[in-house]
Every structure is written in C-alpha cells, then in structure tokens.
Amino acid sequence: MSNEAHNKDWVSRLDGLNHAAGEAGLDKNAAWDKLHTRMQRKQRKSKAGWYWAAAACVLAACLIPALLVHKQKYTGVHTSPAVTYHHSDTAAASVISKKEAPVNVVKEMHKPVAAQQEVAAILPALIHPVNPTNITAALKKDTLQITDTMLAAVPATAAPKKMRVVHINELGEATVNEVVYPEYKPFTIRVNSPAGLGDQTIANSTLNIHLSPKN
C-alpha cells in the first residue's frame, strides 16, 4: 500500500464518520439480533451435520457385517447327494449299464441351508411311516387308567398324526440327473436281398419295430 493518500486530513475525517447526515442510523439491536440468529443457526447446522455423519457411521458399522454374513450364507455351494436313475425300460439299457458305467452329469445347485435342514428333519418320517400300534402303546403309557368306565374298556384309537405336507417347491430345485449312454443311439437294421427283392426293415429303435426277417 502506498502512503500518499494517508497523509490527508480529509481521509481521517472520513474514516471517523459515524453516520451520514439526513439518513436514519443503524438499528443496532435489530442488526445484532439478526447477526446473532445467523451465527447460532450456522452453529446448529454444523452440529446437526456432525450428528448425521455419526448416525451414518453407526448404521454402516451395523449393516456392513450383517450384509456380508447374509451374502456368505447364500453364496456357499452345497452339493446335494446325487441320485442316479438308470433307464431300465429297455433290455438293451440294462445290458449297457452292466457293461459300461454311465456318465453321470449331476448339476450342483444352491439350496438354502434352512430349507435343507427342514427337509432332513421330515425325510425319516416319510421313509418310516407311523405305526398305529406304536402310537396306541405310547398313548396308553401317558393316559390315566380308569377302569370303571366304558371309556376304559374301549382302547383309545390313536388320532391320526398329522404329517406335515411338504411341497415340492420347499425341497428346492430338483437335482437333475442325466444318464448318458454313449452307445445307446437310434439305429435301424435293414436287410437287403441279393435277388433284388424288396428291402426289409427288421429293427428300428425310434419306431420301435422289432421283426424277424422274412425269407
């Protein structure tokens, strides 16, 4: 800054001027209230910003591990025991299955763990059906023996135990088993006569023709 202008008397007098003549002065109280409100509002805003940031951090800290656990739970590969079904409807198939082991293509599937555990709990009950005599014996143990009534004479019939209906959808996607027999292909056997007579089809796997050759 150059000091050439500061030696002037009029500048210092102008700097000392507190109000312009003929104009209303500043309402200091109103101006201060306005300024103070603005200052407090800004402080509150900055505080609120910090609170929001803290809340976001806490939420993130809670959600991220939960999401990771959830993701791991559902992305784990589970291989269900493969059940191989053999085609036994044709005689040739049985022969082939004996001679050569079929190539099993088992598709791995992702099944929810909870659903599998449910199925595992139900399956033994399905395999071993409930015997009514066992149920009556068990009931006899638990029920009070009253001999002087007719009810005691009649053995209580066991109430049919309600089995839980398991829908196929609950078991999840079915395991797809494919048995591929490399040598079991459609074939046709034809007999050509040397004498120029008509040809004869004696076997066709697709049309299911099995004939004995005619003379």
């Binding site: 700097d15 000392g16 001027l17 507190n18 109000h19 312009a20 002065g25 500043l26 200091k28 101006a31 201060w32 300024l35």
Partner: peptide, 11 residues
C-alpha cells in the same frame, strides 16, 4: 464490539 464498531463499518 458490534455496538462499538458497527456505525463506522456501515459508513
């Protein structure tokens, strides 16, 4: 402080 300096600063 505001009361002391506001007038001058307004000018």
């Amino acid at each position: 402080i505001f009361d002391q300096l506001a007038d001058k600063m307004l000018m």
